[in-house]
Design a protein around this nucleic acid. Structure first.
Lengths: 219, 219, 219, 219
DNA sequence: GATGAATGAGGATTCATTCAT
DNA sequence: AATGAATGAATCCTCATTCAT
């Protein structure tokens, strides 16, 4: 009906990457819905409808709802975690400001990532496959180490600072929808995102300031 | 069965109201499940099973799944919001430390509240009745006002501080389940909660500390 | 709630026929609903609500929904059939006008009877217990005999005349509800019922007129 | 399974539209059951079973039980009403005998129509869509006008004659099931239907015969 | 006699998934 | 690659009925 692939064998140029494109569009639609309604709340029919397909067509691209969900997580969360991992590793070369700006940029490009992660967090992360889990612990560990090095917070509170920062960053995106409805402002606009980035830098600055005489040019 | 009505006709103290108790237990079970799986992910059968009932019995106490969900939100969120509203109102009399400690205590008593709210936040809050919504905006407004008075943050970032604090507080409970699984520590233990409270006080302290000559001469 | 039998043992006069009255009121409510919605379409809850009772209270008066339905049929149809049977038997003494007027009066007193019978007729009469069935055949037979004696209609059409008369009489009440809604007139008002009675007399008159010279004073 | 698609790929004539056929068969099954048991008394499972389907498969063809019921009414009643409307309009060209014969033929082809209409009539016609309702009033009006022109019945009784005719025609089909069980004769056999048609013609004939000096000199 | 609570049976509906086309 | 049709499993919900109070 919608797709009228006239002749099945004539297009010579680009070998009809229509399939890939469709899969991508399915992922996009699924990302949006999974982010809003979670796994159980998302109906494949709605995903298909967003792409202009019927329900069963999704199975030409993904083996199951679970597979689709995993693919979304993989596609969306993986890059962010990779980025974080990279930042955390080469932490010596990057100022914390750079890390913040970089993270914010990564999340701003895929605002649904934060919401997907929140859903997983709420439900205990049953879907956070091992692959992804392996990333989280290291990231937290590294962050803990970095925070410890600042020698500002007592050891037993360092993980709480890290968790707080995590929540501030993630929560910003989580709250965006409701915030707009209640406060009337779009937290995902580029201005808002820039402001939040600036804010985060100052925010972290304050959290780790003090100590002897640590100037920002210190690290 | 579960309710130990000792003697069938003698209980003089509390008038036998097995019904109310059942409703309460249903709310408890529903709270737990809604908090973990969200509205769609929660099956009424599971709720009933937790109370030792069959599925249809729930309808003797709540008209529908929606009604049950609303009742849970109402019962759980309302008191917290009331508390917040009260605190925010009598802001002059309470130190910010008291507000923090009070809020933490309220949430610690009902750790699921934060998760329920997060679910609502993610899905756009379609279930947050107007009554409840009316509370949210004022609380944020008051918090904004209070934060503004500190004259620490520029006006356009005050809401971001407030939102961040909100996310830190709520996110702490949201992350508890996953945190335990990954970090092996129970954030809901009384020690952890006390630590978090202490941390939050210092946290806020730092965020609003009188700007210690923020590096005009510094950089 | 509704029934406030103040003291359980004091009323000396009439030995509290409240029970009977309740049963009667239940029958009334059930009659109305069964007539409108049929057996399956009628919910005991609705019946109870009409009497100001809760669902289970009906079981203090009737053993089951089936029993209640049978009781309604019994109470309502029986007298009409009895009347018909009596009329048909003593046909020599009654003019057809009297039979018509009598039947109409009986049905007018219980306008739901016709509708109950129609429901049974439509569904094949599974509930028309033997008792009631025994009545129908004789009534039709007698009516056939009476009609045959008029020597107006050919033998093979006599049953059709009888059936038609039956349908005219019963259908009048059946159509009342819809008729009012569409034509805006209440067929059950006393004026309408009188008019219909007069009409029926003339109607029958016409159907059986002709023949030699049968005058109304003939019989 | 049920549909004998002789060869799976050869049928040249009618383009394979198994779907439409299935929908048609569902309508058939639903018609039968709705006619007998009414809306509430009909279980979708039974409808599906008659077509050799499982319950949920019906939803591939009709959105809901209500939609299925409406579709049945629409499909079945509409043509009959259209026919009546047409007849009533071109009343000048058709003898009343033709109208009677035509109506009987239409109803004989779909004997369930009368029963469906009776169910609706009994329950107040909540399901008769406005579209269909619009037809009923005109048909009655036209019939009233036609009957009035005969100048046989007094004005206030004309609607009663029309209603009676309606009841005689519809009631014949309504009573068929029970009649067979009690009288042992099938009113829907072609002989019976022909006889009834003949009867109806004579019946109407008598009802509208020029008043043969109705016994002014008679009594 | 009335009712709150509980429930087995069932009924409409949804949904993920399969399969033939 | 897309889809109409079919379906098993499950879900929410209704209802008649029971029972203890």
């Amino acid at each position: 009906m919608t797709t009228a692939t006239t002749s099945p064998s004539a297009t010579p140029g680009p070998p009809r990457r229509k399939g890939e494109l469709t899969a991508e569009r399915i992922l996009d639609a699924a990302e949006t819905l999974f982010a809003e309604k979670g796994f159980e709340g998302t109906k494949l029919r709605d995903v298909a409808a967003r792409v202009g397909l019927r329900n069963p067509s999704l199975y030409n691209h993904f083996a199951s709802k679970e597979a689709l969900y995993s693919a979304v997580l993989e596609r969306d969360i993986r890059p962010v975690l990779d980025l974080l991992a990279k930042m955390v590793e080469s932490q010596g070369e990057l100022s914390s400001d750079d890390v913040i700006a970089g993270t914010m940029k990564a999340l701003a490009d895929h605002p649904n990532v934060a919401r997907l992660v929140q859903h997983e967090t709420l439900s205990g992360g049953a879907h956070l496959t091992g692959m992804l889990r392996e990333f989280i612990a290291p990231v937290f560990s590294q962050a803990n180490r970095a925070a410890t090095m600042r020698e500002v917070w007592p050891a037993d509170q360092v993980p709480l600072v890290v968790l707080s920062l995590y929540n501030v960053v993630v929560g910003y995106f989580t709250a965006a929808t409701l915030y707009r409805e209640i406060q009337g402002e779009d937290l995902l606009s580029s201005e808002a995102l820039e402001r939040q980035t600036r804010f985060l830098i100052e925010f972290v600055n304050r959290l780790f300031r003090e100590a002897p005489n640590r100037s920002p040019s210190d690290s």
